[in-house]
Amino acid sequence: MTSPLQQKLKITGPSIVTANRTGDGAVIYRTSSNGWSTELSDAAVVRTADDAKALWAEAMADDLGAIGSYIAPVEVGSDGSIEPGNIREAIRLRGTTFALPASA
């Protein structure tokens, strides 16, 4: 099977690499300092396929820290703020779109 990194990658706009943290499954974002953050604002933003592949390769190399990494679209505001590029990523960032039922 062809590695995802060998496959053709189409980037249509600013993108980030995201995954889930191995220990607790929390949503995390790859930073520009070769680490992870739970804050989208800390994410490294890439704009070309080559840069995206490089960032993703770094992320996948950290098998102990994160699982299921992938490239996701974002929107970058004029002030540099980063927002999720689709509803799936918005839900991953902000949680369910309804109040959780727990009373605890």
Binding site: N20, D24, G25, A26, V27, I67, G68, R88, I91, R92, G95
Partner: peptide, 8 residues
Amino acid sequence: VYLQLHAY
């Protein structure tokens, strides 16, 4: 044990 959007 699955991995979902937010967590296991």
